[in-house]
Amino acid sequence: MIPFSVLDLAPINQGSDAAQSFRNTLALARHAEALGFQRYWLAEHHGMPGIASAATAVLIGHVAGGTSTLRVGAGGIMLPNHAPLAIAEQFGTLESLYPGRIDLGLGRAPGSDAATARAMRRHLASDADQFPQDVMELLDYFAGSPRQPVQAVPGAGLQVPVWILGSSLFGAQLAAALGLPYAFASHFAPGQMMAAIETYRSQFRPSARLARPHVMLGFNVFAADTDEEAAWHATSLQQAFVNLRSGRPTPLPPPVAGYASGLDAQAQALLAQVLSCSAVGAPETVRRQLRAFIEQTEADELMITSQFFDTAARLRSYEIAAEVRTML
């Protein structure tokens, strides 16, 4: 049975705040743990009015401390924003506090606009082209390599699983070359998904960290008791994407009946493309869509994200996803 995991963007709902978002996150993490989800990841974003997970390592600690068996991690840390030593120390601290439960996914995008990226790392060269070197430096810190004049304390000698995240062939090639697990952002950037999967699997080199390729794919799920209810809830994410791509990011909006039908053709095409890796509907509808996606990709693991405005409906959607998983 394919493992399911959770990607939580810690959404800030319209009319709410970050404090409530964090309460919702912990409630969902405990729910996911009880339902048997494999891992629970949070993503680094900055300057986004609808996403509260900017201090990602802090929030990971909050979730890990409020659960007991769930793997908790970053999906991901945007490494160009940080010195690799600082990340090694942060995740070494998390692994020391919650041994055997921490994951570290790494991305090369800044997770923000150019101005925010400069503010994040204003005294350092924030260059995505340095990403492979930064990843290698980080791996050396965890290995306690004598090549590094500074040791990560805590961090050195700890077995923190490191993943490469991506939405293009670049990350697939790097993960394959380093023998690391690979997570593809198909939940919002599916364009090169199949090419990236093929590249990663065909070029994979076994390493001390991973003997065989492991692909995890992001996937949107809006599950409810009826197709109509699920489609209504999905309009919150549709609005958020259109707002973001229009240069005016907002808190997560409440659902609007028939939202997509009122958009112009260009906006409708955008949504159809970026959200093509989604299952929206009642349990049987979601089961069919998930099965088709898994058969197409042969994914080793799915990371389910569900951007619901209504917290109870989001919990219910993950319940349905867990039930459907047993029937795939």
Rank of each mutant, 00 (worst) to 15 (best):
P3S: 04
L9Y: 09
A10N: 06
P11C: 10
N13Y: 01
Q14Y: 01
D17N: 15
A18F: 03
A19W: 04
Q20T: 15
F22S: 01
T25C: 13
T25G: 03
T25E: 10
L26M: 11
A27K: 13
H31N: 09
A34T: 14
F37G: 08
Y40S: 07
I51V: 15
A52H: 04
A52C: 05
S53A: 15
S53C: 12
A55E: 08
V58M: 14
V58S: 13
I60Y: 07
V63P: 08
T69C: 08
R71F: 02
G75C: 05
G76N: 13
P80Q: 11
P80M: 10
N81A: 06
H82W: 13
L85C: 05
I87V: 15
A88R: 01
S96H: 12
S96M: 12
L97H: 06
Y98V: 06
P99S: 09
G100T: 10
R101P: 11
D103V: 01
L104E: 09
G107H: 09
A109M: 05
P110K: 10
A115V: 14
A117T: 07
A119H: 02
R122E: 14
F131E: 01
P132T: 06
Q133F: 02
M136T: 13
M136A: 10
E137C: 09
F142W: 03
S145G: 05
P146K: 14
Q148D: 00
G155V: 12
L158A: 14
P161Y: 04
P161G: 10
V162A: 13
W163I: 04
G166W: 02
S167H: 03
S168V: 07
G171K: 06
A172C: 07
Q173P: 00
A175T: 09
A176I: 07
A176Q: 04
L180T: 07
F184C: 12
H187D: 04
M193A: 15
A195Y: 00
E198A: 15
T199R: 14
F204D: 01
P206C: 07
R209E: 13
H214I: 02
M216Q: 14
G218Q: 06
F219R: 03
N220Y: 08
F222Y: 14
F222W: 11
A223W: 05
T226H: 08
D227C: 10
W232Q: 11
W232A: 06
H233A: 12
T235W: 04
S236C: 02
L237T: 05
Q238C: 05
A240C: 02
G247A: 07
T250G: 00
P254S: 14
P255T: 10
A257V: 08
Y259S: 06
A260Q: 15
A265H: 06
Q266N: 11
Q268S: 07
L271R: 10
V274N: 04
V274H: 00
S278N: 08
A279N: 09
A279H: 04
A282R: 01
T285C: 08
L290N: 06
F293D: 03
I294H: 05
T297F: 01
A299R: 01
A299P: 06
L302F: 10
S306L: 09
S306G: 12
F308D: 03
F309D: 01
R314I: 07
Y318A: 09
I320T: 05
A321V: 13
A321W: 05
M327P: 00
